[in-house]
Nucleic acid binder design. Sequence first.
DNA 1: TGCCGTGATCTGTGATCACAGTTAGAGTTG
DNA 2: CAACTCTAACTGTGATCACAGATCACGGCA
Lengths: 232, 232
Amino acid sequence: MNLPASLNLVEPLERQTLGERAYAKLADLLISGRLAPGERLSLRAAADVLGVSIMPVREAVSRLVADKALEVTPNRAVRVPLMSAAQFRDLTKVRIAIEGHAAAQAALHRDKRDLVSIARAEQAMRAESELPTPDLPRAVELNKTFHFAVYEAAHSPILVEIIRALWLKAGPVINLDLRANPDRLAKGDAIKFHADVRKAIAAGDGVAALEGIAADIRGAADFILSRGGLAG
Amino acid sequence: MNLPASLNLVEPLERQTLGERAYAKLADLLISGRLAPGERLSLRAAADVLGVSIMPVREAVSRLVADKALEVTPNRAVRVPLMSAAQFRDLTKVRIAIEGHAAAQAALHRDKRDLVSIARAEQAMRAESELPTPDLPRAVELNKTFHFAVYEAAHSPILVEIIRALWLKAGPVINLDLRANPDRLAKGDAIKFHADVRKAIAAGDGVAALEGIAADIRGAADFILSRGGLAG
DNA sequence: TGCCGTGATCTGTGATCACAGTTAGAGTTG
DNA sequence: CAACTCTAACTGTGATCACAGATCACGGCA
């Protein structure tokens, strides 16, 4: 095998199946809260929108059902699960435990590049939220970017994957709400907690990083619960 | 709606799709370590064995791929992922953090019924392991029963689900090894740790429960790592 | 006017077919 | 006898069809 040296640099192009792309699309809709709890999803309709047959959609949906990010009711209908207040509290507790742990690990294991991407993500979100009329969908996206910059800094792929699955469940509840209520963003709590987290991680203070993330998650959750819009 | 009173007792019969049954079968094979890392799995062959078409198998496999309990290589082959020592260490760290947390929560929130099922599971596994020639597959199953009796006592469905996904990944490595090496079971470490965990949970001592689970997980992991059979 | 049966239309599930890409092994060549 | 080539069988992916069950709106009966 004699190849031109330049070919050594090419990385094998990742083949993405239609199923994976459909999964990515649907997962994004869920995390960003554009699919509301209780909303139904038709395989055929989704396939039409995506311009493919229902097969790739079936695969994507069956993955999301496995993650409990979607559910198929006994009546054969796929929908975003309705979450009771009790379930939401459970989810919030688990998120605080796991995402807090990840933040603490990040404070212990972060390297320079992590600090850069965390700082950049924090700055981007603060800039957006301080605009006179922030773009809410964009703010949701930037919030996600910041959090995952933190979690990536823990250097534990498995942990990140678990947290991604948690966000898939929490997204419809949390981000749907945020889209509808700019107030929470304007209040600026998240911005403050994010700054605390960034400083703690930079300082290598695991406990403070954990507490910052916990406060951020708990703040959003309390806000949702206080509005009382969840199922019985 | 006037119905005979006796009809009030009937519970809606759960419909289980073939896909779900296929998933359960394959997941069991993985958790119990009957599918070894690197082993390939053909959709059509599996479908033949299960006596169905490949469609239900496809759904089951795509779920397991989403969980990273299986992977499909760039060459279009489904197999149990090979785990490097580094990945296994990461998995072990995450398991200790999350399963330890669950055990601690169990110590704080357990009720009487939890204590009964934990005690029963512990007793069953000790009995099996103290036999002159323990049935290893059965011991693997009883070990799983004990651990999940503990985790269920945390009363957090989401946490249990996350741990189940972790076991799906760890099963092939840990339990394949245990099947091949009775030594570890004979050594009796697990039995001792299980007793510690049970006592800690009964006493409501979260820290001790966490440490017991951590010791159990770490003990098995160290054993595996010392044998050096993992991929580079 | 209120209720119930009924059928058209939709749902997800499962099977089957088609296809491009891979693998393995037999056959051939040096 | 080793290495190469080519082909036949097999891989997962995607599309299409078939089907049982659920939904909902329309129409007829009380």
